[in-house]
């Protein structure tokens, strides 16, 4: 760009050339301002979602760019929420991208004083072992004797208390698996 071009881009000169003598409008806009667009417009995809906080079930739109969530906002199409969100719903991006989230398995051995690292695979295997061991140790196949004998098919050695932000599909697998294992003490937040 020549000197003339540079001069022409000088807002002071533009104040004169654009008739913006007071320098409060167009003449002072920077190139970055000229380029400004909502970041949702440049998202790679928009994913339909539902707010994970209370049970109103507000619609959310999740904007993804380069496999990262760049914005979550209300879905204006929802007949429930009409695009609106409460402070919690509005903080959803902060929730799911928060630096305080845990991304690794943490393990505390019996009587341990600190968290230890543990691979996910090892943790899964250990938990499966604990379930089997406890179940075997606490299994109740029947109650009563003789004519009074009745089936129990269960263990009271294991309990589960789930949150109520789990998906229906997740609850379904929990109930199905636990019932098959004979774990009857399966409860959730709805009881609290």
């Amino acid at each position: 760009m020549g000197l003339g071009g540079m001069l022409a881009r000088w807002p002071l000169v533009r104040q004169l050339t654009r008739g913006d003598l007071l320098g409060r409008g167009d003449s002072v806009r920077s190139p970055a301002t000229e380029r400004l667009r909502p970041r949702t417009a440049t998202a790679d995809r928009v994913v339909g979602s539902i707010c994970p906080y209370c049970a109103v079930g507000c619609g959310q739109r999740v904007f993804v760019k380069d496999e990262r969530i760049v914005q979550i906002e209300g879905d204006p199409d929802s007949p429930i929420s009409r695009g609106r969100l409460c402070p919690k719903g509005a903080a959803t991006k902060n929730l799911v991208t928060a630096p305080r989230r845990e991304y690794r398995v943490k393990y505390r051995r019996p009587f341990g004083t600190e968290w230890e690292e543990l691979s996910l695979d090892a943790a899964m295997d250990m938990i499966a072992e604990r379930v089997i061991t406890t179940r075997d140790a606490t299994w109740q196949s029947t109650e009563g004797d003789g004519d009074e004998e009745r089936p129990r098919n269960r263990t009271l050695g294991i309990a589960s208390l789930g949150g109520a932000t789990l998906d229906n599909e997740e609850n379904y697998l929990i109930k199905k698996l636990m019932t098959a294992l004979g774990v009857v003490q399966v409860e959730n937040q709805a009881r609290i």
Partner: peptide, 12 residues
């Protein structure tokens, strides 16, 4: 500060 001259701005 030298981008503009604004008579409305005593600082400018």
């Amino acid at each position: 500060m030298l981008r503009v001259l604004k008579v409305t701005s005593p600082m400018s």
